[in-house]
Design a protein around this nucleic acid. Sequence first.
DNA 1: CATAAATGATAGTAATACTATTATATTTGT
DNA 2: ACAAATATAATAGTATTACTATCATTTATG
Lengths: 229, 229
Amino acid sequence: MQDLLQQVQVQVNEKIYLKNPESSDLGRRIVAGSIELMDRVGFEDFTFKKLGLQINSPEASIYRYFESKHKLLLYLSSWYWGWMEYQLVFGLANVSSANDRLVRAISILTGTVSNDAGMSLIDKAKLHRIVISESTKSYLTKAVDDENKDGIFATYKKLVARVSDIILELNPNYRYPHMLISTMIEGALHQRYFAQHLPRLTDVVNGEDTVTDFYMDMILKTIQTEDVN
Amino acid sequence: MQDLLQQVQVQVNEKIYLKNPESSDLGRRIVAGSIELMDRVGFEDFTFKKLGLQINSPEASIYRYFESKHKLLLYLSSWYWGWMEYQLVFGLANVSSANDRLVRAISILTGTVSNDAGMSLIDKAKLHRIVISESTKSYLTKAVDDENKDGIFATYKKLVARVSDIILELNPNYRYPHMLISTMIEGALHQRYFAQHLPRLTDVVNGEDTVTDFYMDMILKTIQTEDVN
DNA sequence: CATAAATGATAGTAATACTATTATATTTGT
DNA sequence: ACAAATATAATAGTATTACTATCATTTATG
């Protein structure tokens, strides 16, 4: 049920794909296969030819769904943020205290991702790893301004805006809510990468979720009003 | 003089290049030309063929200095962080107060970069833009672990360690100094990118350096000891 | 069941990311 | 000043990548 709702919830901007991959069996194999392959070989070595081999379909058929691997990466990132927004809306529903909502939002956005029972076609743990390692490459390109005009990054911006609003509820005078939240979201991804590959850039303690702990502490301290009476 | 000192100061790990580009006229043209070209076309569309045209030397000659454009990007990033470390050492020299040293370090690491008068072969403003837009691509690859073993990222790690130490001087109980500083350094680069291309992820105010202001405020609040007596 | 639409199979192209070879400069040691 | 070593230029070539095109075959739809 949860899964069905997720499928319904996660909407990806139509300009990202040529043909909606959720609309056919081949499309779904492309998405599932690309997650497996990109997690395994990385974006640079990922090719539509290899993906074709992986899913037993010709390279040319994949091009009917996505113009390029860049667009496919945009699709995966966008899907991830759409799913995250859904998690957020669900996780904050009926929580009246703004403080509680912020704490929950930070947990959701900086925490680890594990696969739900319901055998979805999308492996969330692998997708999270892809987002960690590859998603910045989706917007650090010369095409960013054109794609932004097309609304490709709208989901991500909405997510940032949503959490920024909670911060403003708690402290209407805080001047940098968007910077704080985008710093946190990007930072949490980076810190998880560093923990795996460049641990001296972090303070990871085995068995503890120091990433969430760090950002929780940082944000709550940062938005405190100057004079608490 | 400043420039001469910079040339002497900035050392790049030898494993990054096949032949030190500082050792010849062609090498220097490769570095200067690559900064111009990469800033203009971006890492994805940057090729050694185009660079060859730009500097009027054959593509094959460039390969005698750098194995690949990935290594060249590593060189530029590494050079930048080496230069930053130099700026830091210089900027913090003879400043006894740990608090002042931290404030200066945050300014240096999150601030804008402009070209010095001394007509260096390296255009720092362009290099800063390259670091903003492309440097994450230098470590978000499958080669990161091998390259890390070779010490390719040592300069960057040293920089983070250096500022972390200042934080520990101010608050020996703060648990996440490395996370805080790496979040700040990467975050400041990202925020400058967002300000240009995805402004709704920031709170940029025209004419003000909100990036430095934001991180200054965030860090000083975050490392405050819980109970100030 | 006829028609349209999607997919498969195959081929082809321009560009990329290199490597190799040889000729011509340029530097270096004596 | 000159031979030897070294660096660069000029050119060619290869495997792979990132596509596009064509046509046959399968699968869905009215």
